[in-house]
Write a protein that binds this DNA or RNA. Structure first.
Lengths: 192, 192
DNA sequence: CGCATTTTGTAACTAGAGTTCAAGAAAGGT
DNA sequence: ACCTTTCTTGAACTCTAGTTACAAAATGCG
């Protein structure tokens, strides 16, 4: 009854995500998107309405795809303390693998857009809350097990870890030094 | 021998700094700059060459003007531990006062540009190093005075504090919650 | 098969970004 | 008073961002 799409919209969002992730929102052009997605301008706008709308979808995709690794590590097996360590080490390793220094797309969105765009801000907050909640439940678990001293407020500790991972993203943008980042993570863990 | 400038270039850089600080680099337009500086387009480019060059000057100005408060607190009088607390509280208070949530211009520059522009990255690194050094010498002083336990590596602690303040900037962009930020700072201090 | 529908590629459009330029105005030295 | 220099204003210019429009092509239903 109607012509079928020749490209996979899901795959296209993935590619758009890569472009926005690497360049940020404002610095990304329709031209770059068209080239990266391998489709015509017409198809781009027919399928995704606007640059802004595509960015939002890309950020949601990032939230679903790239943000889960951390949660998996935190919700995984093993002593709570070890999981927290593994989580921070994961972040550090990812930052060092990231040769183009794109950082974390949510951190980037927070800094570039959260103050100007309520929808983006909301998405960012949701990501942060999920991460914070994962930190928190891991910490609480550790406290029940006696793995982590119980005289600290788990909510405060979770917010602190959230801050730390965002701080690591910023640092790594300017100067991805392996030794420094590792010691950093180590020091943050010593708060427990 | 030549006509004198009718505007104060130093004051103009200050105004440009405000605009870039609030909007970031890519999202700032010549039009906004012209309006904010109150000069003609011709004068703008005659005096500052390009948007990029003006941004660089604005960021340098930020480095000189807005980045010193932290250092003053850290280098000030009083017990080292108290100075570290005051420094973090200063950051938190500034974030809460910042109704437009511009955050820290250096943090913003790090995230938006440090991966693409080596000159900006260098400036960011310099700022970070200066802040890190101030944290470090305060910590070392505290360790000599017995104010801070001496069994920790001051360099690692300093890097950790640098991360924390950048993390706070990111968090505050998305959700400037007073209670959370204060407890955050408190928790970070408990690492000592 | 033909029809309604949605896709695609390409051209077109508007607006504004980022910069340059020309003509005149202030300043100071001679 | 003039000359040189540097400033100012404002228009002008090029280029591209971001979007839309259009004609042709594909699809499946009746």
């Amino acid at each position: 009854m109607a012509r079928t799409k020749e490209f996979d919209p899901d795959a296209a969002v993935d590619k758009a995500m890569e472009v926005f992730w690497a360049n940020g929102y404002a610095a990304t052009t329709p031209q770059q998107l068209v080239e990266a997605l391998g489709i015509g301008r017409g198809s781009l706008y027919n399928a995704f309405t606007s640059k802004r709308a595509l960015y939002e979808r890309a950020l949601r995709r990032y939230y679903e795809r790239e943000t889960t690794r951390l949660l998996q590590v935190l919700d995984g097996p093993g002593p709570a303390r070890e999981r927290l360590r593994a989580a921070l080490e994961l972040l550090v390793a990812a930052a060092l693998d990231d040769r183009e220094r794109r950082g974390c797309m949510v951190t980037n969105a927070a800094v570039e857009l959260a103050d100007r765009d309520e929808v983006i801000a909301h998405l960012v907050r949701r990501t942060f809350e999920r991460q914070e909640a994962a930190f928190r439940s891991t910490i609480e678990e550790g406290q029940r097990d006696g793995d982590i001293s119980a005289d600290r407020d788990p909510a405060a500790l979770a917010a602190f870890f959230l801050t730390t991972i965002n701080g690591i993203q910023v640092l790594a943008k300017a100067d991805p030094d392996p030794r420094r980042l590792s010691r950093l993570a180590e020091t943050a863990l010593s708060v427990l």
